[in-house]
Amino acid sequence: MPVRRGHVAPQNTFLDTIIRKFEGQSRKFIIANARVENCAVIYCNDGFCELCGYSRAEVMQRPCTCDFLHGPRTQRRAAAQIAQALLGAEERKVEIAFYRKDGSCFLCLVDVVPVKNEDGAVIMFILNFEVVMEKDMVGSPAHDTNHRGPPTSWLAPGRAKTFRLKLPALLALTARESSVRSGGAGGAGAPGAVVVDVDLTPAAPSSESLALDEVTAMDNHVAGLGPAEERRALVGPGSPPRSAPGQLPSPRAHSLNPDASGSSCSLARTRSRESCASVRRASSADDIEAMRAGVLPPPPRHASTGAMHPLRSGLLNSTSDSDLVRYRTISKIPQITLNFVDLKGDPFLASPTSDREIIAPKIKERTHNVTEKVTQVLSLGADVLPEYKLQAPRIHRWTILHYSPFKAVWDWLILLLVIYTAVFTPYSAAFLLKETEEGPPATECGYACQPLAVVDLIVDIMFIVDILINFRTTYVNANEEVVSHPGRIAVHYFKGWFLIDMVAAIPFDLLI
């Protein structure tokens, strides 16, 4: 008679799926529990143990900040960024110097990925580790590398530091407007667009060049630039800015003055950032001319202004700041037409079709709590990747769950009947059967004279019903998954307890 339990259901295979997918890609990662103190490590794979030199037993239950890997060259700011990422709910990448158990130093890129439950609360953290440099290539500990984003994938490793954006290309926007319009339909740009040429040739750093990471940081200074100062900065030398009595002219307006920039070969870094931020506020060169004239017309309804409409929906549905990093990277690809469009465009503009998908598509409701890094690593669709929660398995109709209350009560009843059979069957065979043979035949009273025979008949009927119930009862397979398919249940029961239950259900007393 089957006594099969499996009270692990309803099970959740999400954690096993993450481990299996990460292991298949030869990654070095740990999984931490966000619900406990210090976000203790609950799993670390073999790749991480080989990377740091510690065994799994030495890593388990330690804080996922990996303070046991810190050393003299470990930056405090990087460690603080990892700790801050564990307090938030967004994906974050941090470069930090770690030390192995043998004392060797290596520069590592740590990717902190939160995993949320159905309520939107962070319950786990996945920390992925990628070695960037070994100890002989690690720089000085005073050099802070965590304020910069990861290198873009479309640049060669040897040319990542030679990417320079020439400031004269930004200063000569109005001069290039006529050349853009003359391109017409034969050019790649839309009317009114501004073409910015980027020099990728390796050259020595000069005062006129600005690194790509500095251009990325310009967006942080746009908020500090007032509207009046932006307007004066875009007017140009024809209309000098008016300053109040006793007030000095704005240095932001002076930063885009061609006369002032041409007199000296070098520009201050602050002026460069502010000038680029001011130019980015204009949607095209037409807006710059309109600002000089004193009238700013409404933005025209053409394809170039609607190019950012799908980007707005993608940004609203993005799951991490990696989408913004990807957008900034692609927006700086050289030799393309940049349409400086305000994100607050007309909502009635139709979304044009684009061959290049900048932001990841909208994630469906079932995966809105899973970050983009987890979705990318697992390579699963929205119909396959579940949320991290207890999910009731989908069972067929008329199927009994093996952990249901009805099955528990039924098993206790069958257990009592088995005990009765084990006690009274030998007793009936030894004593009652002998008395029946010696006594007179009682054929007239039937079952009324033999109450134990009636009980034995009921017990046999219950055993037959138990066999039928076992054909529709779920079970737990070797992978700790609840199986509810009727065919698989029948095959599993035939290979197991079916023969024993059938022999126990045969009414031998009635056959004798």
Rank of each mutant, 00 (worst) to 15 (best):
K373T: 13
S283R: 05
L87D: 13
G192H: 05
N33C: 05
D16S: 15
M308E: 14
G71C: 01
T162R: 11
H368N: 11
A211L: 12
K93T: 12
V374Y: 13
S179G: 09
P297D: 12
A169E: 09
T305W: 07
E230I: 09
R366E: 03
T174Y: 06
K21F: 04
K344G: 14
V110D: 01
F106L: 01
N45E: 01
I123K: 10
P347M: 09
D144H: 15
V131M: 15
D346I: 10
T174P: 15
S351R: 06
T201L: 06
E230R: 08
V59H: 01
P157E: 06
M291K: 08
R326C: 05
R56H: 01
R181M: 06
G88Q: 08
P352A: 12
P245V: 09
R273N: 07
P227D: 15
A142G: 11
C265A: 15
R148G: 09
G226N: 15
A223E: 09
M133Q: 06
N128I: 09
S26M: 07
S272P: 10
L248C: 15
A156R: 13
R281L: 07
L127K: 01
A277T: 14
F106K: 01
L127Y: 01
A85T: 12
F68K: 01
A79Y: 02
S140A: 10
L256A: 07
I336Q: 14
D136F: 15
E177Y: 06
T13F: 08
I336E: 07
D46S: 06
P298D: 11
I19R: 01
H7G: 07
D197Y: 01
S206W: 05
A253M: 15
A79H: 13
G88H: 08
F14G: 07
S318N: 12
R366K: 07
G139C: 10
C44H: 01
V59P: 01
V195G: 05
T216I: 10
I96H: 01
P249L: 12
G158Q: 15
V110W: 01
P157V: 07
D199A: 04
A40S: 14
V215T: 09
P300F: 01
A188I: 06
L87T: 08
A34W: 01
G262F: 04
D287E: 14
V110K: 01
P2G: 07
K166L: 06
A40V: 11
Y327V: 08
E118I: 06
A253C: 14
G238E: 11
A211R: 11
L15K: 01
D342L: 01
S264A: 14
D119N: 05
G306E: 12
P245L: 11
D219V: 06
V374L: 12
G47L: 08
T152I: 06
T367K: 07
G236A: 12
F340R: 14
I363Q: 14
K21A: 07
A89C: 13
T305I: 07
N38M: 06
A260T: 12
A175V: 01
S182P: 05
T216F: 06
G224S: 14
V194A: 06
L165C: 11
S206R: 07
R100W: 01
L315K: 07
L127E: 01
Q247I: 09
A277D: 06
C108P: 01
K21E: 13
A307I: 12
M218S: 10
R328I: 04
R269S: 11
G53K: 05
Q84L: 06
L349T: 12
S209A: 03
R292Q: 14
R77S: 12
E357A: 14
A169C: 05
A57I: 07
P227A: 05
S272V: 05
C265W: 15
N128T: 08
L296W: 14
H7L: 15
H221M: 15
S264E: 11
G381R: 03
C108R: 01
F106R: 01
K373S: 04
L316G: 11
V122R: 07
R269N: 11
I42Q: 01
G314L: 07
R100M: 01
H143G: 13
L69R: 01
R159K: 14
R366T: 14
T17N: 15
W154T: 11
L267I: 02
